[in-house]
Design a protein around this nucleic acid. Sequence first.
DNA 1: CCTTGCCTTCGAGCGTGCTCAAAGGCCTAG
DNA 2: CTAGGCCTTTGAGCACGCTCGAAGGCAAGG
Lengths: 163, 163
Amino acid sequence: MAMDELMSRALAALGEDGAPSVEVIHALADLDASTEPMTIAEAAAHLDVSPHTLRYYERAGLVEVGRDSAGHRVYDDAAIRRLVFLTRMRLSGMPMRDLQHYVALVDAGKQTEPERLDILLEHRDTIRRRIRELTLSLAATEYKIATYGGAAGPDVHVADTRR
Amino acid sequence: MAMDELMSRALAALGEDGAPSVEVIHALADLDASTEPMTIAEAAAHLDVSPHTLRYYERAGLVEVGRDSAGHRVYDDAAIRRLVFLTRMRLSGMPMRDLQHYVALVDAGKQTEPERLDILLEHRDTIRRRIRELTLSLAATEYKIATYGGAAGPDVHVADTRR
DNA sequence: CCTTGCCTTCGAGCGTGCTCAAAGGCCTAG
DNA sequence: CTAGGCCTTTGAGCACGCTCGAAGGCAAGG
């Protein structure tokens, strides 16, 4: 059930522009995975961030990355999976602070799972709120577009999307 | 037609938590308006931003605001309407830069309407993209919540079902 | 009169999240 | 041997959007 919902959400999310849904489902469910170790450039490309950013995340203590004989970073499966999670959370607006807290909990062991779950639940609510805000702004923008030229000033006057 | 769509969107947006839909519809339609002039504190409360922010927007050239005999700002109807627009655009992620450009166009006169429309269309697309991103992140987060405890690390890696 | 409180201007400071520069190492191709 | 290219570390710098502090004005209440 969870899986079906996940997929339908993914499809719904990307439906409009007929985008790479296969890719998306794969990325979401990422079951096979087991990627080969990567260089920083490869990992950056894979995660769609810059190498700078990956080093920054490491410095921030979000992920540990091994080194090869030349001292170069080696991104293994575990690192990549964690970074996939991290970048998704970042993309959805979770602050670095919270991510640092979260990974600290992960590193502290299994007994912190309830607290981690709380963090996720709260973040879920945050995302939902944000989507609602954006949906209202979208409606307002579309309304203004539809009625363009009708208004005197740059306003449409839609409601305050209060919490 | 545009109005119906607007309303149904607003309802859809707030439906989930049974929120103040009446308030929202009223505010959405808010055609009457004609608020009395406000002090900066009142305007700030009305717009849900700080007085500091309102002064900042004024300094940034986003809005002109009159003064009373004591030199205090007076937010009239036109100012409030513009600020409602501005704060909504900000809330939906439009950069200050773009807003400055937009109001410059507004002040430049009617012949800039096509360009203003372009800006709105582009912003609409930006909001839609963002909603899609957030929807995906939401799905991933909900999935992780649903399967919590199954994973070793902070990632969505699930046991190998199908495929 | 004087305190209280909200307002003014102007410039500076801050929090967030990168982003980059400098100085240098390793490796491979020519 | 050397040049190119990608990597390393460290610390600094930047863009954005506020947010605040200092110094002072005006007006009402005690």
